[in-house]
């Protein structure tokens, strides 16, 4: 019976990982930008939810949309004002740029919000369900549901709308897309904005689960990185599969080998996969 509990733990954790990674994967896959800012965007989303709850009593799940919108504008602005200028440069240049912006933004948050860990305490938190002696924490289940919904929404946005098709066109071939009349710079900005939107929304979502502090941003970034490599870059289903897999693996790894080895196990698997399938589980060759 305990294995079902471990599996349930892993799936719930995995959905959160997927949500943490999907925006990062999109930006990396489409723009070829390794966005070091991603973790900080998530923390910023959490702070938006935290302050909206504290000063206006807005439920964090409602703040998902507010945080997503604010972060979209911010991402759009950062891409059009800064990253677009060096977008054609080698990946190391854009990485350094986002790294620099991240230092500024993260330290600004430290100054503005302090490094104290805070947490949203809902007056009526969702209870844990107990189904056949498997405990399912209410807020994790709800967060997982919302995370899946967001991810599916993104998937359809990319498939079924003009903007989405333009993003995919740019991902496949930047020059050809430009020749077909796609405004590549604008698509870049929108894509980066959507990446930030997903990060902000995720931040608001997990504000009911994790303590909030600017110091957490690197942990989120690390998870996003692993999930992307596991699942394959730039694909929404890839992030989902990678996230779920990482969650389940860490859960069982922690159970069998002790919690201190959970991370060792997931990174070990990452190494093996990099040898065996460098494109990730759902990655397609030649997309870069």
């Amino acid at each position: 019976m305990i294995y079902f509990q471990i599996l349930a733990n892993g799936l719930m954790l995995g959905a959160l990982y997927a949500c943490i990674a999907v925006g990062f994967s999109l930006v990396w896959g489409v723009l070829n930008v390794i966005n070091i800012l991603h973790g900080t965007f998530i923390v910023l989303g959490s702070y938006i939810a935290f302050f909206a709850f504290r000063f206006a009593g807005i439920h964090p799940f409602v703040s998902v949309f507010i945080a997503g919108f604010v972060l979209f504008l911010m991402g759009y602005a950062i891409q059009s004002a800064m990253i677009n200028r060096v977008i054609a440069a080698p990946v190391l240049i854009t990485l350094t740029l986002t790294f620099g912006i991240d230092l500024v933004l993260n330290n600004a948050m430290l100054v503005a919000f302090s490094a104290d860990y805070r947490k949203i305490n809902l007056p009526s938190p969702l209870p844990s369900f107990e189904v056949a002696s498997i405990f399912l924490p209410g807020d994790r289940v709800a967060a997982m549901g919302l995370a899946l919904l967001l991810t599916i929404l993104l998937y359809f946005l990319l498939r079924a709308t003009n903007v989405g098709r333009a993003i995919i066109a740019v991902r496949m071939d930047r020059e050809a897309a430009a020749l077909m009349g796609v405004d590549v710079k604008r698509v870049n900005a929108i894509t980066f904005g959507i990446g930030a939107l997903m990060a902000g929304a995720t931040g608001a979502l997990i504000s009911v689960i994790y303590p909030i502090s600017p110091l957490n941003s690197s942990a989120f970034l690390g998870k996003a990185f692993v999930v992307c490599v596991l699942g394959g870059l730039g694909s929404v289903p890839g992030a989902l599969v990678g996230g779920l897999m990482l969650g389940v693996l860490e859960s069982f790894g922690g159970f069998w080998f002790g919690p201190e080895h959970a991370v060792t196990l997931s990174f070990g698997l990452l190494l093996i996969l990099l040898f065996a399938r460098p494109g990730g589980l759902l990655g397609k060759r030649g997309y870069e």
């Binding site: 305990i2 509990q5 471990i6 733990n9 719930m12 954790l13 994790y210 942990a219 690390g222 998870k223 860490e250 859960s251 069982f252 790894g253 922690g254 159970f255 002790g258 919690p259 201190e260 080895h261 959970a262 991370v263 060792t264």
Partner: peptide
């Protein structure tokens, strides 16, 4: 007696084991 790594983001495996 469980140990968890620095930077652990989830304690469900340890907590489940302790509960048992």
């Amino acid at each position: 007696f469980e140990r968890y790594a620095i930077g652990t983001m989830d304690h469900s495996a340890a907590v489940t084991q302790m509960r048992a």
